[in-house]
Nucleic acid binder design. Sequence first.
DNA 1: GATGCAGATATTTTT
DNA 2: TATCTGCATC
Length: 797
Amino acid sequence: MSAAPPHRPQGPITSQFAAREPAYLAGLNAEQREAVQTTEGPLLVLAGAGTGKTRVLTTRIAHILATRKARGNQILAVTFTNKAAREMKERIGKLVGASVEGMPWLGTFHSIGARLIRRHAELVGLRPDFTILDTDDQIRLIKQLLAAENIDEKRWPARQFASMMDGWKNRGLLPKDISPADAGFFANGKGQKIYKDYQARLKTLNAADFGDLLLEGIRLFKENPEILAQYHDRFRYMLVDEYQDSNTAQYMWLRLLAQSRDGINSSNICVVGDDDQSIYGWRGAEVDNILRFEKDFPGARMIKLERNYRSTSNILSAASHLIANNESRLGKTLQTDVGEEGEKLSVTSVWDSEEEARQIGEEIEQFQRQGDPLDDMAILVRASFQMREFEERFITLGLNYRVIGGPRFYERKEIRDALAYLRIVANPNDDLAFDRIVNVPKRGLGDAATQLINQTARAIGKPKIAAIRELLETEELKSGPRKSLSNLIHQFDNWSAKQFERTAIETSENNDGEIVERQLILPPVPHYELAEQILDESGYTAMWQNDKSADAPGRLENLKELIRSMEEFENLGGFLEHIALVMDRDSGEGGDAVSIMTLHSAKGLEFNTVFLPGWEEGLFPHQRALDESGLAGLEEERRLAYVGITRARKRCRISLAQNRRIHGLWQSAIPSRFLDELPAQVVEVTDTGSSYGGYTYGGRATTRFDNRDPFESVYETPGWQRAQRQQSARKGPGPVTIDGDLVARSSGPSAAYGVGERVFHLKFGYGTVTAAEGNKLSIDFEKAGPKKVLDSFVKRG
DNA sequence: GATGCAGATATTTTT
DNA sequence: TATCTGCATC
């Protein structure tokens, strides 16, 4: 704390300062204040969910500015998402007035990375106007390289290589750093070569991918210590948001910047994060970065923010107990400041996902009748396929919802196509953009023409546009393609010229009948008008206008939106940079609506009521996370559960289906192990009544069959429950001789059903087996029609 | 260049 | 089950 020294002299100036506390500090708790005021030296702020992390971060910047420790352009503040960057800008603006404009180094890792290498582009082998490639471009480029190496794309998909390379780049590895073992995974050891070729191709294309924006920065700093020193001088203070999500490359990048001249990490770097909310390990994030911070930055202080201003104590208690099951964490104990126990969390077991959607829909309507706005409710799912069922249900109910996530604006085909046109105009060397649109709309250019262009380009070592120019001088092209290519090139020249001031000759006849030529100076066409012209003149707009598919009008609308959004930018270059790095999906308008999104995209948000469906083994925790990453995977899934619960302010409603259809097959579901990790006192277990057997909780059976058989509740294994359900499905009392081995046998060969056999299924009733393959059966049900089910789901009928 | 079929493939996705 | 991709075909 920054209490004044005890025997502070009572001069008029000092007392004035001591007495009047800056307004921005008001309302902060002791730890928050400390985090704001500890400006010197490395600092780790461990901020639990809902503890006012963003507030600390923004106030800290405001504090640095207000106390004149640094000017806005001497502060480096990085976030992961554009949304977070925007929010920080806004909030700082509110705190200190308009000086946010003076913070050019507040942004995402990638946008700052790009800014940095643009300034020194020539040192990393690029020109300052280099293009930023998206994933789509990357894949297409890799495909070309694979073809050149005669690698069978079926066996070694480009996509797979792209994600591998992504992993390398996340770890800060250049082609030369790839170990033979790593590279050996792909195409019998050709991985390293392809990576190398890929990087070389990027340089000739004057392009960089997302990974390069950081990787090239690291290289730049390593190879040019004098430039790094400039930035050491510049950045007096560094702040990093969501540090638990940083990957190795980002860590290296930061660490270089945070070094002082003598190479010791003693800078004023403040990282804020929550190890318990690290959910992007699969994307290369290293929780280790945050766990290791104090070692990496000697003399680092750690401040924990543990006072939660969001959730009721019941919700917090559930979340804390759950996350306490993780081994690798720094450990925090969240305490609520809401001062309310609140409702218990509810856990509801339902028959299947359809019922789950129905159930949640009803609850939402009920809360709505009580006066809760839909905006305050959210459904957070583990996997996006779960969303559909809710959407369908809500449509029938007429319940307003919005889906958050999904493909981003600039990932849409029409936007990418339009951008490709603009990219070529901005940078005629952009062969990837050229490939994308040579024949879009159709220009009668087939394989033959494209091949010829590629060959020529390779032969003369020039971009494709240049190659076409040369080809047009020769007779090599057939007349059709020749004409359309010549036309296209003309158009590009024309569009390019319009970016700048240019001259035109106007011919007219004067009164004496003489032809008079006048030279006119035409001003540059504004880039947004140019874009519109390009789309019209190229026939691209017409292409969609003539398209009668259902989504064509939407696409045209998107194109309009694209052009509209261009007006905010000074020039084409600025716009293209923005679109590649910053363009957000159009965020939620459309009135009061329930949000449906994945747990991942819910991070950082909060709602009064949160629904968490699908808490079943295999789905959540997801089987693949378990298979691929073992214990680490499980812990990440648990953190995801923690994120989910802590999104709730007042109400948290968890549900699980006993049956779920995955890839068209009905699978029985076992309650998620996470349910057992919730403390019993804060959870209320309900059953919708339509389920059999079902979910038992904390040693107590909670099904409506509780009183039927006093011994039933002893058996809680999932397999047992399944057996139980099968038993109870039988008509009449029947002999209740339940054999523990029954379940194991049911999926083994001895349980195989023969074609033509009559069987009974709990959901579909009676039917006849039409085909059997392993434990999968095709059954023609009398009422429900043909279905595929697992044999353990049916009984001989 | 449109169409249709076989075959693979089906977590999460800040930039 | 449903959706997407590449490829063959007309």
